[in-house]
């Protein structure tokens, strides 16, 4: 049956409208749960607030379990889902840069836009920084291109490239998630509390 759009259950023309609705809902949930505060995000690195870790880990684990149950019951074909292509070194270097930006600025690109929407000044500065980064990258594109387009590995997944059993991977991933939540709670209780709005 699913995925709904590639199989024509929802016409392709609704793509943008659905994307806008999901985007608004995502932004609203981010803001409502306090993710537009840079302190909340930076809290993961300083150990006083692990909400970001818990939310994104839970989201990934719940959705992967749901997808595999739906695949098992025949409501969704996993092979039809879009797998983002891997550019190995571009992903590693980009990840490091984004991590530094994350801990230094206290935003990820999505939450920074949420914070811009509610008028936080640091978010304005942060988004300005993103724009400068985009500009610098575009200007030096010919210099970065070999890394940007190189080390292309195709639309691979861990399960395919290592030949793992996906069900065991999900089970182990869930256990890791639970362990990470418990450990993060222990850490949070030991670290001095920080109060912020």
């Amino acid at each position: 049956m699913g995925p709904l759009i590639p199989n024509g259950l929802i016409p392709m023309e609704w793509d943008s409208i659905i994307a806008i609705i999901i985007g608004i809902a995502f932004g609203f949930v981010l803001e409502a749960s306090g993710f537009s505060s840079s302190r909340k995000l930076a809290g993961v690195f300083y150990g006083y607030d692990f909400a970001v870790l818990k939310v994104f880990f839970t989201a990934a684990a719940v959705s992967v379990i749901g997808i595999y149950y739906m695949d098992y019951l025949g409501y969704l074909d996993i092979n039809q889902l879009y797998v983002h292509p891997t550019y190995l070194w571009a992903a590693i270097i980009g990840g490091i840069i984004m991590g530094i930006g994350f801990v230094a600025g206290g935003f990820c690109p999505g939450t920074s836009l949420c914070a811009v929407a509610i008028g936080k000044l640091d978010a304005w500065v942060y988004v300005g920084g993103i724009m400068i980064g985009v500009f610098v990258f575009s200007e030096l594109y010919s210099f970065f291109e070999p890394i940007y387009n190189g080390y292309f590995l195709g639309n691979i997944t861990l399960v395919d490239s290592f030949g793992w059993n996906p069900y065991w991977v999900i089970f182990i991933f869930s256990i890791i998630a639970i362990v990470a939540f418990v450990v993060s709670d222990v850490v949070r209780k030991k670290v001095k509390k920080v109060f912020y709005s």
């Binding site: 684990a61 379990i65 069900y167």
Partner: peptide, 19 residues
């Protein structure tokens, strides 16, 4: 509540393995 949720979570993931 957190322990119960974690248990449900593990059970669901384990169910995939056992199916």
């Amino acid at each position: 509540r957190y322990q119960i949720l974690a248990l449900i979570f593990i059970l669901l993931a384990g169910g995939l393995v056992l199916l």
